[in-house]
Design a protein around this nucleic acid. Structure first.
Lengths: 306, 306
DNA sequence: CTAGCATTATGCAAAAAATGCATAAGATAT
DNA sequence: ATATCTTATGCATTTTTTGCATAATGCTAG
């Protein structure tokens, strides 16, 4: 069965004349005749009354024509819907995955900045472990993962179809409560035997992977004693402000506290850990919307955050 | 466009394998590949995700397949009617009018069930807007109109010679994709600030008239954010199965998905919208055939659908 | 990471189908 | 009845589709 057959029938119904209908349909009259015949054979009945001029559709012909119009309308409608959905991708929900720490602070600000220059998108955020996020990405449950990277720990996939671009930077610095004169409550220089209390991220916290290498390479184990442990940066921040100890915290998180004098930087200038905020995607799972976003971000390198 | 293309697509969807599907369709694998490609070119989109084995239809592919099934069912139905009418000449042709959504889904099944108990009738279906259908009925162009009714929206005429009997029931329930443990992906209970993505019927869709009153009376606007909008229930169903959000869909449409665990009910038990499928007639326009049908249906109240 | 297996895509010649031309057959009107 | 218009048919040609062989690609197990 061929759509063309029904288009022919429709034209024939309009013109009432094989030759003219054939001309309009851009085929020869014999070919046109044969197509109508093919349709009649397929349906199993005469659809055209040729005994009269101009020829007229039989009741059966009228019914089939009507039905075919409805049927192909249905298909055409769906076709249009699909094409529209593709050209108006704004309806697609882009799913981001991120560790709690990023999702909590970086993501909202970044999304705001991104939408300001790119335009609004419909998005949701799934906050979870980094490992879970990446897993979900490879299961195609989420489109992008936002993760920290440092010189010590890269998230690049091992042969997996994973790509990354940097969408922001941050750094971890050791901070603590200031004395009244603004000097750090815990200055490493003054430590002979006594160790400095350390507010540490839990072993399970992803950020630990970035901090531990520094602690080891700088031999800081000798100078620190764990005073508190929590995997949420917010909790460490509160303890640091209270003066419980020293914590390596993301600058983006504590910038307000530094300005307000609630926290000060301590320790050595070199004990700073540069972090890149990376957007990861699974190359094998893209669509118009996510490709556009990716291309946009890849060409801009970085969007300044407010 | 060729019917064979869609049959191929349907087979491919079933087997998930080009070679096997080709074999079943009695054609070589290269030819099969090219036919699928031809269909994709015609629609203008990739319809099959070949990156995975077994291959799967893309959402667009699913949508097109669904539409094609409905469309060709319509044509086959008409074909059958015509052949039957030929063997029983001079019979009155009963004309039904229905909205597209009913015409595509409910009507064929209902007519089948009706004919099983009543005996074969010769009929045609005119699919159109509800308003147009009713208009046509009062113009005596069609004998019966089939329409949805809910507590929120009755089609009873205002002083017009219009009667109605219920010939079926259905209900709309909110559904979404299940988690691995079978719980709803989007459970309203867990939402404090975050809104649940809503797959909504377009404003123009007739079914919206039944859903909107519930949304308003239950204050659901606060809990829902529109994630996708389409006037075809099939499109919403696909999105729901993908996990894009929550949709209110007719039970008759999604019963198979619920059984297969592709969708689960979510939200409150009370957020269910009962629909009656009503047969309407114009009292001033009857004849022997239509009066008999009416009397038959009126005394039976309801014919169970398969 | 690679070899081996399975699946899909492509080049090309052969087969099938549709088309156009010329013309026959049929219908209409004067 | 015949001139004229319209549709159907035979046949060579063109276009399309198909199958075969094979290349490219994807998946899996060692």
């Amino acid at each position: 069965m061929d759509l063309a057959w029904f288009k022919d029938l429709g034209q024939l119904s309009k013109t009432g004349n094989f030759s003219q209908a054939a001309q309009i349909r851009n085929i020869s009259q014999p070919a046109f005749s044969r197509r109508i015949k093919a349709l009649e054979t397929w349906v199993g009945t005469k659809l055209v009354d040729r005994t009269r001029h101009p020829v007229k559709l039989t009741p059966a012909g009228e019914q089939m024509l009507e039905a075919s119009k409805q049927a192909f309308e249905r298909i055409e409608f769906e076709k249009k819907q699909i094409i529209e959905a593709q050209s108006l991708p704004d309806k697609y929900i882009v799913t981001f995955g991120a560790q709690h720490s990023i999702g909590w602070r970086f993501f909202p600000a970044w999304l705001q900045a991104f939408e300001d220059v790119y335009g609004a998108i419909i998005s949701t955020l799934r906050a979870d472990d980094l490992a879970n996020c990446i897993d979900a990405m490879h299961k195609h449950e989420i489109d992008f993962v936002i993760a920290y990277e440092s010189a010590y720990s890269r998230n690049r996939g091992e042969g997996l179809a994973r790509e990354a671009i940097r969408i922001g930077t941050d750094f971890l610095i050791p901070v603590c409560k200031p004395n009244l004169d603004g000097t750090p409550l815990y200055a490493f220089s003054s430590s002979k035997g006594s160790k400095v209390p350390w507010l540490r991220f839990g072993e399970s916290a992803p950020i630990t992977k970035h901090i531990n290498p520094l602690i080891e390479s700088a031999g800081l184990q000798e100078k620190l004693s764990v005073a508190y442990e929590n995997s949420m940066s917010g909790a460490l921040r509160i303890r640091a402000r209270e003066g419980t100890g020293v914590a390596w915290l993301p600058y983006s998180l504590i910038a307000p506290d530094l300005e307000a004098g609630l926290l000060v930087r301590t320790g050595n200038e070199e004990w700073k850990i540069d972090l890149d905020v990376m957007l990861l995607r699974d190359k094998s799972h893209t669509n118009t919307v996510t490709r556009r976003i990716w291309a946009f971000l890849a060409t801009r390198q970085q969007i300044p955050l407010i």
